[in-house]
């Protein structure tokens, strides 16, 4: 190896090492301070990194928490298959809280119309799962660089008995002295990846050689354009009059519902080229690929107040 080749990865690693150690510390604080924590796992890249952090934090023990997925019923089949595979590999208990089941039981009413989304329905299902399993901490993969309301959120983010976030009255969070104390019925959302950026996540996936769902890499898919975004044709997202589909090489930059997650035109078929594309992009991940954030300037803040991830 030449000098220049060794310099770059080493230089990058110092930041990843620090971020990894910080996240492991937070993960261990949760294990020590809570009785019934759960890790939120969607099969998306951030929660994949989260599971890796948990794996490292407790090695050679297994991850001491169950893994919780809120399944809207509109997920990519590739991602669900990945979720099941990864949970089995880790020997983790997978709990699936289903939006479809809640709709079938008549507890939730679905939005109607061609632009209907189950995004908001995830919140009551998540809160119900937290209550049912009496989870006192839910560890999530949210990052502060994702969105301006998230930029304001604490690492240990307190939720009242209604699961609500009060952004104007957050607990002070000093040094690494996280305060997990709460009374029964209240819970904490914990975000070990708060200080990671999108690029840090991708570089870490590359460094750790983590397996990720195939839809993160370029593949040929039947897509159509809506509101300037490239959406996959699926039974959950029918074409509107005037819309036509075609086949194209795309990859996904974020993974959510098929109804609200857009694809990116790309030929990047391996992690190295994906990292290079992310490093060069001029559009934010949520702006490029998430219809759920386009509702208003404060869409995320409003959802988070209600108890969203």
């Amino acid at each position: 190896m030449t000098t220049t080749e060794t310099l770059v990865p080493e230089a990058t690693d110092a930041v990843l090492e620090m971020l990894e150690s910080e996240a492991i510390f937070i993960m261990r604080e949760v294990a020590a301070e809570f009785e019934r924590p759960a890790i939120l796992f969607s099969g998306g890249k951030d929660s994949i990194v989260l599971l890796r952090i948990a794996e490292k934090a407790f090695w050679p023990s297994k991850i001491p928490f169950p893994v919780l997925h809120v399944d809207t019923g509109h997920n990519f089949p590739e991602v669900l298959a990945y979720r099941d595979r990864r949970a089995a590999e880790l020997g983790a208990r997978l709990i699936v809280a289903s939006v479809q089941d809640a709709i079938d039981r008549g507890e939730l009413v679905e939005e109607t119309g061609p632009r209907a989304s189950r995004n908001r329905l995830q919140t009551p299902v998540l809160l119900e799962a937290i209550a049912e399993h009496r989870f006192d901490a839910a560890i999530g993969g949210a990052r502060r660089d994702e969105e301006k309301a998230r930029a304001k959120e604490r690492v240990f983010s307190f939720r009242d008995e209604f699961g609500q976030w009060d952004p104007r009255n957050q607990r002070p969070e000093l040094w690494q002295l996280y305060n997990g104390m709460h009374v029964r019925g209240e819970h904490m959302r914990v975000f070990p990846l708060s200080n990671w950026t999108e690029l840090d996540i991708w570089r870490y996936i590359e460094r750790e050689q983590l397996d990720i769902p195939s839809i993160y890499f370029a593949h040929e898919r039947e897509v159509f354009e809506r509101d300037g975004m490239v959406m996959a044709v699926s039974e959950y997202l029918p074409l509107l009059p005037g819309e036509t589909s075609h086949c194209e090489y795309v990859r996904y930059r974020t993974v959510g519902d098929m109804t609200c997650t857009a694809a990116v035109r790309s030929h990047a078929a391996d992690i190295r080229t994906v990292v290079a594309e992310i490093a060069a992009t001029r559009i934010t991940e949520r702006g490029q690929s998430r219809a759920d954030d386009h509702v208003s300037e404060a869409a995320m803040e409003d959802r988070k107040r209600e108890g969203y991830f």
Binding site: K152, P167, R168, A298
Partner: peptide, 16 residues
């Protein structure tokens, strides 16, 4: 980042 901050034009809490 918060609705109240944009409305009032002041920073209320730490943003990272």
């Amino acid at each position: 980042g918060l609705r109240a901050e944009r409305e009032q034009g002041i920073t209320i809490d730490v943003a990272y």
